[in-house]
Design a protein around this nucleic acid. Sequence first.
DNA 1: TCGTATACGATACGATCGTATACAGGGGCA
DNA 2: TGCCCCTGTATACGATCGTATCGTATACGA
Lengths: 192, 192
Amino acid sequence: MNRRQRLILAGRHLFAAKGYSAAGVREIAAEAGVSIGLIRTHFGSKAGLREEIDRQVIAQIEDLCSRASEHLGTEALDLLVEDAVEWVERERDALLYVRAALMEKTPGSQALLRQLLEIMRRFVALNRERGLLQDDVDEEWAATFLVIDFLGPAVLEPFSEEEFGMSMYHREMVKRRSAFMNRVVTQGFMKS
Amino acid sequence: MNRRQRLILAGRHLFAAKGYSAAGVREIAAEAGVSIGLIRTHFGSKAGLREEIDRQVIAQIEDLCSRASEHLGTEALDLLVEDAVEWVERERDALLYVRAALMEKTPGSQALLRQLLEIMRRFVALNRERGLLQDDVDEEWAATFLVIDFLGPAVLEPFSEEEFGMSMYHREMVKRRSAFMNRVVTQGFMKS
DNA sequence: TCGTATACGATACGATCGTATACAGGGGCA
DNA sequence: TGCCCCTGTATACGATCGTATCGTATACGA
């Protein structure tokens, strides 16, 4: 892997772990195994590095989004969910970067959130078209709900080990959680 | 208000708005209208100031929690929700501070999250005792779900104006949201 | 009224921040 | 071979960070 990409991955990791302000350029360069000057050479500045990271992460999510749109059959929904779960497992750093990026309002983080909303709006619309949506559902809030639900575990992840005894993305955790969420979206958990 | 408390409020506001690392002690002192030295005098250090803010915010949430426990009648649930909504409206800065605090793992932020979980566990247990819970509900995940749902709007708040045209805590937004959430917890929004 | 502790402000200090500059190797092309 | 751009490193620079120090004002008990 070339040094430019090494810098991007190191930056993504450190921004995700400590936040943009707390992660220094020297630390990033050290983790990437290159010298500080390269950040300026390739990205102009620390902010430029963040913008490039934003671009790559947004591209990943866009990819996730467009792949689901390609399959316009009955299996589109399952594919979308499957893709998303697989992506979270494979690119945990990217997800944790999204978490960190949303902590401060930048053009990049706004775009990230918009992408997520777009995916979820599409998901809700697909469900409606397939007749899987209940009547009179506030679709905009349904999409927002799904975004919150997608980001929630990432937000809690750093505390998960101490609070629940395991990672939010541990297999058992994912299983319990998806069982609960399946129940919630189809029938809720409280009597009316 | 004495200068010590002014520093606490200014710190809470700036930590919430820009994050702990990005908010400087000079900036905090300026917003409080005092000199930098006072932070050291009263709290020892910037980290000490954060700890004091954590203590105060945790105390607020504890207060919220214990007030609900006092009313052990049928109206306990409504009172808890009412109190929480009123608190969010009155102390928006505190809520946004919780949001920011959860971005980095410190003893204070861990305690904050634990408090929130405790409130929600109690809420779920109260519902069960009153027979309002459906059968075979995973109560631990229900509480976690409620925490995520409580924090979600705070996480999205900085982007809300641009994405939805108004604040997450605008009256109309709150109304639509609580209508949707009521529906979700009692019957979901998708057919099974 | 005096002594002392506390509250507070101004400023200095060392470290670290992000950025700028100077320079070294290494292919591609005339 | 000579020139040049590109990638890369090492180091210097100015700003700003959190913290420490010192001087002064104010309040309070003897």
